[in-house]
Design a protein around this nucleic acid. Structure first.
Lengths: 108, 108
DNA sequence: ATTGTATATTTCTTAGTATTCATATGAACT
DNA sequence: AGTTCATATGAATACTAAGAAATATACAAT
């Protein structure tokens, strides 16, 4: 039916929000709100496999939701608070105002 | 491996961002930034089938990203600008600062 | 150079989501 | 009530992204 489905203008937000739409990734974001952590730290705290955490961190890093620094053999990840905190703040307000039902039940 | 994977606290953002992570849905949001529109208006402008638009609008409405009012037989949808505009604004800033590459290529 | 520790990558499978198509509902008008 | 236009719904299929498991790389210390 279509020739050109979407313009760059419109799809540009896609990969970014895709990260925040993933339960594991949002849990990682939740952890990193508190303090910066290594991959294994995250794996332990979240009770998930290391490779899974690495995968998640890679895509979070690709969209600059988290950033990384090397420390010996460890790689320490920290949240890009400048962007993410205000964004979650807006959502909290939205949620408390409009969206109790859908958020509680996970309706899409 | 896990018993309890995530708490409510952590997954609550999931359905909301899931909507913004979808190309069609974000295109709808893009259209509704300009003006409110009916389902068929959207279908025509975006060159997509009506049922597809309806499906997308349903999930957007479930998370209060759009709102709807009846007008004769038409249903007019409009954007929840209070939440969405500041959110896109934050992202634009983020993008121009950090994420040119990933956004251009759609890397996740 | 070898070992041990930390993280990343690759491939395959599975689960979750979107799309399609057919059909149903609902509202206005005759 | 029947017709038309506008929208929504449901079920089947097609996609895409996430998860699992095994393996590879990178670094530090000995």
């Amino acid at each position: 039916m279509n020739t050109k489905k979407y313009t760059m203008e419109n799809i540009k937000y896609y990969p970014f929000f895709g990260n925040l739409a993933n339960p594991l990734k949002i849990r990682i974001v939740g952890m990193l709100k508190e303090k910066e952590m290594s991959v294994l730290d995250l794996a332990k705290e979240l009770k998930e496999e290391q490779s899974k955490i690495s995968h998640a961190l890679k895509s979070l890093k690709n969209c600059a939701i988290v950033q990384m620094k090397q420390k010996g053999k460890q790689r320490i990840y920290h949240l890009n608070k400048e962007t993410i905190l205000p964004m979650l703040e807006i959502l909290d307000q939205h949620e408390s105002k409009y969206c109790k039902k859908c958020l509680a039940k996970g309706i899409k």
